[in-house]
Design a binder for these strands. Structure first.
Length: 512
RNA sequence: GGCGGUGUAGCUCAGAGGCAGAGCAGGCGGCUCAUAUCCGCCGAGUCGGGGGUUCGAAUCCCUCCACCGCCA
């Protein structure tokens, strides 16, 4: 089975922040999980470069937009690398392959009779690249940028979104999973029920953008440009192998603020073009700070590279995914981050690894053989299988938090089993060596399961665990099914450095 | 203004007619393999307020308050 997952493409007019990274980390974790589950995964991200803000920013930097974007591509790629995000393709909307796809989508919509010329006039905020109604302004200013919008009137091309209401409604009803989480779906159903209005799909061109076919002086506006990236990365409009394998997408992962465009305009565009629809639009929550949403205009951004450097990329990833139910907003707070790292990673998981491997080393010189068939001594193998089921069930619903919670049930069970069986006592009793062998082996097996369950969220730490467990299978070959079927005959473990050192909050938090 | 959501322990939240729960934080105890870790025990919370239905309400109904989202 193939699995195609995309992120929103980002405006490169400023550096990515932790909020942007959250989306990529979530998508990366889903992609890695799907690979574990044995699926043929394609994971896409990229940049949305045709924005007037990008153009403006480039000129402020004294660069041509194209050169500026080339530079920002490096900045984004470096940021994603720093948080262990690995994608299969990186699409830029200024690429030739993308232009061809955009033109094809416009032509298809036109051939379906869904485009027409009209005139657009109103108050326009250049920063938002959007028109405002008088009543939506605050003291005559754009509510987001606090700038005065300018009166603008222009002839544009319009898309007949209004004629897709019934089809979208039917889509939502036949596929309740199309928009997730449910709260977003409810909002959009209400929106559709109120009646959709046609949308303008072109703008007067400054030369930066895809020229609107058949309308000189006009550039394709954001919908037909940006949304189409999901197709262009697959080679559309050519009938490529990639397109055949991966379209339609399984999930478009986007921020809750742009879920609407992905769940209304995008499927309408695809219907108009006669193309299959994606299975799910998932609207994730925002990363908030005490001052509100993390965003450039709030001036409260945190650089993911800096946070990853300070706390470890995988620890940051764990925190972001474990802290709240996926889909909801989360508050990014250093005290909480450190609390999670210490409680869950250092104390529970890290210490479990350390104590288990130390005992294996001390009592059996690190070499453990599989006990004969039969019921386990600790119950851990049975627990592990149960946890894997819960884990898969959660992850398949994109409940990334639930997957981690399930894995931690095994962590708890293993810590409990150690206290229950007291290997240090068994080691002193000559007639109980077989029991000690079994206990140690079952514990190490539990660690092997944990290594795999945790690998989508913490790929780097999973490799470190693999090293200590003497597990040499390359990460590409890690799969849940083979994990379940092939318990090793014997293992040779080597305790190493603590996986997650305990953090002292005083080292990170201001005494003030 | 319309639609929807939320309000439960110090904090974050789960529970959706049948004895108020989990994790974290805090307190006490136990263990010694371990990263001051792990294990166990410890909760006098008007379940936002008020009214109602019911043998029984965090849970269902009405109403009010506060906050949030979407739309206008």
């Amino acid at each position: 089975m193939s699995f195609y997952i995309t992120c929103a493409i980002d405006y490169p007019n400023s550096r990515p922040h932790v909020g942007t990274a959250y989306e990529k980390i979530s998508a990366d974790t889903i992609a890695r999980y799907k690979r574990l589950a044995g699926e043929d995964v394609f994971f896409l991200m990229g940049l949305d470069e045709h924005s007037q803000n990008v153009e403006k920013r480039a000129h402020e930097e004294g660069l041509e937009p194209a050169a500026f974007c080339d530079r920002m591509e490096g900045v984004f790629r470096e940021a994603w690398k720093s948080v262990n995000v690995e994608y299969d393709d990186f699409i830029r909307t200024t690429e030739e392959r993308h232009h061809r796809a955009v033109v094809a989508m416009v032509e298809r919509a036109n051939a379906s009779g869904d485009l027409y010329e009209g005139s657009y006039k109103g108050l326009y905020c250049v920063s938002c690249e959007a028109y405002y109604l008088e009543r939506d302004l605050e003291d005559g200013l754009c509510p987001i940028h606090k700038k005065e919008p300018a009166w603008r009137e222009e002839d544009n091309v319009f898309f007949r979104l209004s004629s897709y209401g019934d089809k979208l409604k039917a889509l939502y009803e036949e596929h309740p999973e199309f928009v997730q989480p449910a709260t977003r779906r409810n909002e959009l159903l209400a929106l559709i029920d109120e009646g959709l209005e046609d949308v303008s799909v072109s703008r007067a061109s400054s030369g930066w953008g895809v020229p609107m076919p058949g309308h000189s002086g006009q550039a394709v506006y954001v919908w037909f440009d940006a949304l189409t990236n999901y197709l262009s990365a697959l080679g559309f409009p050519d009938d490529t192998d990639r397109y055949q394998r991966y379209w339609p997408a399984d999930v478009h992962l986007v921020g809750k603020d742009i879920t609407r465009f992905h769940a209304v305009i995008w499927p309408a565009m695809l219907m108009s073009a006669g193309l299959p629809l994606p299975a799910t639009i998932f609207g994730h929550g925002w990363v908030l700070t005490a001052e509100g949403r993390m965003s450039k205009s709030m001036g409260n951004v945190m650089d993911p590279m800096v946070v990853a450097e300070q706390f470890g990329a995988d620890s940051l990833r764990y925190f972001l995914l474990r802290e709240v139910r996926f889909g909801r907003d989360m508050e990014f707070d250093y005290e909480r981050l450190i609390g999670r790292i210490n409680a869950d990673l250092a104390n529970d998981l890290g210490n479990l690894f350390q104590r288990t491997l130390t005992m294996a080393k001390k009592y059996r010189d690190g070499v453990l053989a599989a006990p004969g068939a039969g019921a386990s001594v600790t119950g851990l193998p049975e627990k592990a299988r149960e946890v894997v089921d819960t884990y898969r069930e959660a992850m398949d619903r994109y409940d990334l938090q639930g997957g981690l919670v399930a894995a931690w049930e095994l962590v708890s069970a293993a810590n409990l089993a150690i206290d229950g069986h007291k290997p240090w006592e068994l080691a002193r009793e000559d007639d109980r060596t077989a029991e000690l062998d079994s206990v140690l082996y079952e514990l190490v097996e539990a660690l092997r399961y944990l290594m795999v369950l945790v690998s989508p969220t913490m790929p780097e730490k999973a490799r470190a665990m693999a090293g200590q467990l003497g597990w040499s299978l390359p990460s590409e070959e890690w799969m849940l099914d083979s994990l379940l079927e092939s318990a090793p005959e014997s293992v040779q473990v080597n305790p190493g450095d603590p996986l997650f050192p305990r953090l002292d909050p005083d080292d990170f938090l201001d005494p003030a």
